[in-house]
Design a protein around this nucleic acid. Structure first.
Lengths: 200, 200
DNA sequence: TGTACATCAGTGAACGCGCGTTCACTGATGTAC
DNA sequence: TGTACATCAGTGAACGCGCGTTCACTGATGTAC
């Protein structure tokens, strides 16, 4: 009983993946336990062998989705040079197809849901800090001469993450695809050092 | 029957206000029609004399809350000079007490909920554009010499709104009040022309 | 001013349904000898 | 290799509850004469 079998672990992960998909599409309250289990190829009764409650599942989904993002950003931030790394992170986050498909970062589709559930809220704390650290690592120095200020990169990372999250929230809310696209483009332009725009 | 009585109008507004409060606190799916009516000082049965369904209520709440913001920003943008106007709008939006109380802009607490409900989504389109126009009106020229570019203010407004929305979403999600505060401060600093920080 | 009536906003019991959760059971897997 | 048994992941019927919605009714308000 001490070690869970590998089959158990796989099933648990399948449930987490199914919930991660459906919760982002329909919100946590918009998806029942039975729908999650069906998506995972199981029946609803077995759910409680893997999670104590739907709340506990939500918290695990929150943790697992955001830790995946944090790991990805961390790796990019340590592998690439800062400039290309930042561009990869931002372009990946603000990718219009991903946003339209609804498979974008859970912060943008479930942020308020997580914020209202204390278990989910505390589950994401670590990953959130990890994302900020990765972002701070690849932030450019500001164009005024203030590159010495120690917290400057952190402040820029906080603002950049805010801009990305907000842009995706607003792009998904916009009724018009052109406006959606404008949010994503404007956010990317405001985070990345100016250089992309035209030849003027 | 043509003209609704003033009493009817007042009651309808009381329901809208109650729903605006409770939906922002607990999410749309987290609040029942009976809770909304009780908060409005009525019993649940009377609800359907005022709204066709809970969905219709959600859409009206979306419209009414965001149009209120749009009107407020519009007035500020036409009354004050651009600099002070922008500062008032940003400081009002990123106010830490308002964020902590949960009475902040509905985009940050219900944005994803609205985005998933087509009626709500189309109900907010106009107000969203109104908010962007007000914001564009008070945006400063960029510090590079590109002040002639006609869409530059619009792009800045899109990015600024994204930053504000994202910062509040993240501040409410952060488990630590200090981190919450840092999101709000960093967002304000990144939107407002640099000048507030220290005497350096 | 007073009476009779029509209107209609709001009441509260009742409905069917879907949800989260429980539990006795099944049947496949693995271990002991 | 073969048999007997223990384990345990997954099944599916059942539960109580709360939700969105309906509807026959009440009682206050306003109008007609």
């Amino acid at each position: 009983m001490a070690e869970p079998t590998s089959r158990r672990i796989e099933t648990r992960q399948r449930i987490l993946d199914a919930a991660g998909l459906l919760f982002r599409q329909h919100g946590i309250d918009g998806v029942g336990v039975d729908a999650v289990m069906k998506q995972a190829g199981l029946t609803h009764g077995g759910f409680y062998a893997h999670f104590a409650s739907k709340e506990a599942l939500a918290a695990e989904v929150a943790r697992s989705l955001l830790e995946k993002s944090a790991r990805s950003w961390d790796e990019i931030s340590r592998t690439d040079d800062p400039g290309p790394a930042l561009r990869r992170i931002v372009a990946g986050y603000l990718n219009p197809e991903k946003v339209a498909s609804g498979l974008c970062c859970s912060l943008t589709s479930l942020g308020p849901d997580f914020a209202r559930r204390s278990a989910s809220r505390s589950a994401v704390g670590g990953a959130l800090r990890g994302m900020l650290e990765a972002l701070a690592r690849v932030m450019p120095d500001p164009h005024d001469g203030d590159s010495g200020s120690p917290n400057r990169h952190r402040g820029n990372a906080l603002a950049a993450l805010s801009t990305m999250v907000g842009a995706v929230v607003l792009a998904r809310l916009a009724d018009d695809p052109e406006l959606a696209r404008a949010f994503l483009d404007a956010a990317a332009a405001s985070i990345l050092p100016e250089r992309t725009n035209t030849t003027g």
